[in-house]
Amino acid sequence: MTTAPHHSSAPLPTETLGVVAHAAGDLRIESVPLRRPEPSEAVVQIAYGGICGSDLHYWTHGAAGESILKAPMLLGHEVVGTVVQAAADGTGPAAGDTVAVHPATPGGRGARFPDDRPNLSPGCTYLGSAAQFPHTEGAFAKYAVLPSRMLRRLPANLPLRTAAVAEPAAVAWHAVARAGDVAGKSALVVGCGPIGALVVAVLRRAGASEITAVDVHDYPRTVAKALGADTTLDAADAVSIAAVDADVVVECSGNRFGLESAIRGATRGGRIVMLGLLPTGLQPAPLSLVITRELELVGSFRFNDEIDAVLEALADGSLNVEPVISHEFGIEDGLEAFAVAKDASASAKVLLAF
Rank of each mutant, 00 (worst) to 15 (best):
residue 5 P to W: 09
residue 7 H to Y: 05
residue 9 S to R: 14
residue 18 G to K: 10
residue 25 G to T: 06
residue 26 D to M: 08
residue 29 I to E: 08
residue 34 L to V: 02
residue 38 E to P: 03
residue 42 A to P: 00
residue 44 V to F: 11
residue 46 I to M: 14
residue 46 I to A: 13
residue 54 S to M: 03
residue 56 L to H: 02
residue 58 Y to N: 04
residue 63 A to P: 00
residue 65 G to V: 00
residue 70 K to S: 15
residue 70 K to P: 01
residue 72 P to T: 10
residue 74 L to S: 09
residue 76 G to V: 00
residue 77 H to S: 10
residue 79 V to E: 02
residue 84 V to P: 04
residue 84 V to T: 03
residue 90 G to P: 05
residue 92 G to V: 03
residue 93 P to S: 12
residue 96 G to T: 00
residue 97 D to F: 07
residue 97 D to L: 07
residue 107 G to T: 07
residue 109 R to P: 01
residue 110 G to E: 02
residue 116 D to V: 04
residue 121 S to G: 01
residue 125 T to N: 08
residue 129 S to H: 06
residue 132 Q to I: 08
residue 132 Q to A: 14
residue 133 F to I: 06
residue 134 P to Q: 06
residue 143 Y to M: 10
residue 146 L to Y: 02
residue 152 R to H: 15
residue 153 R to D: 10
residue 160 L to P: 01
residue 160 L to V: 07
residue 164 A to M: 05
residue 171 V to Q: 04
residue 171 V to I: 10
residue 174 H to Q: 15
residue 177 A to P: 00
residue 178 R to E: 08
residue 182 V to Q: 06
residue 185 K to F: 10
residue 189 V to A: 13
residue 193 G to N: 04
residue 198 L to Q: 09
residue 202 V to Q: 05
residue 202 V to Y: 06
residue 211 I to F: 12
residue 214 V to M: 08
residue 214 V to C: 09
residue 219 Y to N: 09
residue 225 K to R: 15
residue 226 A to L: 09
residue 230 D to W: 05
residue 230 D to R: 00
residue 236 A to D: 12
residue 239 V to I: 13
residue 246 A to I: 00
residue 253 S to K: 10
residue 255 N to S: 13
residue 256 R to A: 15
residue 259 L to Y: 03
residue 262 A to V: 00
residue 264 R to S: 06
residue 264 R to Y: 13
residue 267 T to N: 15
residue 279 P to S: 11
residue 279 P to M: 07
residue 280 T to D: 14
residue 280 T to Q: 15
residue 281 G to H: 14
residue 282 L to T: 13
residue 286 P to R: 10
residue 287 L to I: 10
residue 294 E to Q: 13
residue 307 I to L: 14
residue 307 I to M: 13
residue 309 A to C: 07
residue 310 V to T: 09
residue 312 E to A: 11
residue 312 E to F: 09
residue 318 S to H: 10
residue 322 E to D: 14
residue 324 V to G: 03
residue 345 S to P: 00
residue 349 K to L: 07
residue 350 V to W: 12
residue 353 A to N: 14
